[in-house]
């Protein structure tokens, strides 16, 4: 009884965590589903068919390819722009600092539907209504990922000890050498984290994308479309793969950083 009282909060916490995994179990399970009819969405039998023929549903892999392209480009764009801004915010003095903070904060506090519709209003007003597609989606994604990159990299930079840079300078390193040998490697984990965040924000976005996509179809838009008609089980294969790849990345980086700390500790 006492044990239960001591551990009640932890047990509740673990239960809540389990609850967040329920849909993942369903996604994994359904990726092995052998549906008896296209219209009824339930588990009918086990098959490997979906895993062996992932691109069978018409248009799905094309949409997936479009999504990956857009997310990669949006990640590169927003990571570069955002990292530059973060450096300016932490390391440099300039006029209008508080309005700059507001400009970076606002996109994160605006509902996606408002952001998406205002961008659409601009494209239409500028006469681009007919050209909505890949490029307008990319523009939108760089825009809403940017703030998240700035915030992530800024946190890393602000928490950084600048003694190492001072030491490098004292040892006659040029500013360029100091930057590339000391500063950049130290900030890099922050930049990498920001890039991963951008990629997943961009890859997963539906609301802003859908408003500015024209005839282009991204993976979330494909899923939205088939949700009305009958969902091919391959969607769950992609869902499972996404989950596995991201878990691998997270676990990999965790192991890597542990190994590095262990190495430092033994030196």
């Amino acid at each position: 009884m006492r044990w239960l009282r001591d551990h009640l909060v932890l047990i509740l916490g673990i239960l809540i965590l389990l609850y967040t995994f329920v849909p993942i179990f369903v996604v994994v399970l359904m990726s092995f589903n052998d549906p008896s009819s296209k219209l009824i969405y339930r588990f009918d039998g086990f098959t490997l068919h979906n895993w062996l023929n992932p691109c069978e549903p018409e248009g799905m892999c094309h949409a997936l390819g479009t999504s990956i392209q857009i997310s990669l480009l949006a990640t590169i764009g927003s990571t570069i722009l955002g990292t530059l801004m973060a450096f300016a915010l932490v390391r440099h003095d300039f006029l209008g600092r508080s309005s700059m903070n507001l400009l970076i904060f606002l996109p994160m506090a605006t509902p996606e539907i408002v952001m998406g519709s205002s961008l659409l209003a601009l494209f239409v007003a500028a006469g681009f209504a007919g050209q909505l597609g890949f490029w307008t989606i990319l523009i939108a994604h760089v825009m809403f990922c940017l703030s998240f990159v700035v915030v992530t990299v800024r946190a890393r930079l602000a928490g950084m000890d600048d003694n190492l840079e001072q030491a490098a300078m004292d040892l006659y390193a040029t500013p360029r050498q100091t930057f590339w040998r000391i500063t950049f490697p130290l900030v890099f984990p922050g930049i990498l984290g920001a890039a991963l965040l951008s990629f997943s924000l961009s890859f997963d976005d539906f609301i802003v994308t859908n408003l500015n996509a024209g005839n282009t179809t991204t993976f979330p838009m494909y899923v939205w479309g088939v949700a009305q008609r009958g969902i091919p089980m391959q969607v769950n294969v992609i869902g499972t793969l996404m989950f596995m790849v991201s878990v691998l990345i997270v676990v990999g980086s965790e192991v890597n950083s542990r190994r590095r700390t262990a190495k430092l500790a033994t030196r």
């Binding site: 869902g239 996404m242 997270v250």
Partner: peptide
């Protein structure tokens, strides 16, 4: 972790 899978899925 669960939120790495697509929102829609």
């Amino acid at each position: 972790a669960p939120f790495f899978t697509s929102f829609l899925v």
